[in-house]
């Protein structure tokens, strides 16, 4: 991969840092009145998802990371690995480890497209769509007539996620959920 110098660090650029692929979030030049300039860089570690700051001397460079985001549909799991298929018509499949799947495990639904981040052609993270429709498989019986503001109760969804839903929701209903916050949005 090419090397990138600090003045080429832009949001979204993928670079290697301490052996892990990272995505640059922010890059700010800091310079005393006279003297050496530095770049204070915010990076997201693509293996852990964690965002950290690191300082570089201006002009220093980092190796680029061979990282790309591809859209793939979820197919199935054999318990060890989770299988996804590219949506570009190639039917090419990728096996994803539990570690790369992370929290997305609770938002999996067959035939839904996810963004798979590949590093050197290996899946390192899976991002669900912002909104997903899932069926309620278990919750307390709905309270009739209670369609106004009120309390909430836990509901288990077909993907395994547990979310807070309004009291009027019944088992078997399909709900629209915001995967970023885990919040109930509406009935689907």
């Amino acid at each position: 991969m090419a090397n990138y110098s600090t003045n080429e660090f832009k949001g979204g650029l993928k670079v290697m840092l301490d052996g892990d692929p990272c995505s640059i979030v922010e890059n700010e030049l800091v310079k005393p009145g006279k003297g050496q300039a530095f770049n204070r860089v915010k990076l997201r570690n693509l293996m852990t998802g964690r965002v950290g700051e690191r300082t570089f001397k201006s002009g220093d460079s980092l190796e680029g990371a061979d990282v790309m985001d591809l859209e793939m549909e979820y197919l199935y799991t054999d318990g060890d690995m989770w299988y996804f298929m590219k949506t570009d018509g190639s039917f090419e499949q990728y096996a994803v480890e539990k570690k790369a799947l992370g929290d997305t495990e609770k938002w999996l639904k067959e035939q839904v497209p996810y963004i798979i981040t590949l590093w050197n052609d290996k899946a390192i993270s899976v991002t669900p769509p912002n909104f997903i429709e899932l069926e309620v498989v278990e919750t307390d019986p709905g309270l009739k007539g209670d369609t106004a503001q009120g309390g909430s109760k836990p509901a288990t969804l077909s993907s395994g996620a547990v979310v807070r839903v309004p009291l009027f929701i019944n088992q078997g209903e399909v709900l629209k959920i915001d995967t970023r916050s885990g919040d109930y949005v509406s009935r689907a």
Binding site: D18, K31, P32, G35, Q36, F38, R40, R54, T55, F56
Partner: peptide
Amino acid sequence: QMSANALTEESRDTCLDLLMSM
């Protein structure tokens, strides 16, 4: 917030500049 050995070759002034700036 530099890596631990990033400054092993650097001058006194570079270290002072970094501490001053950051």
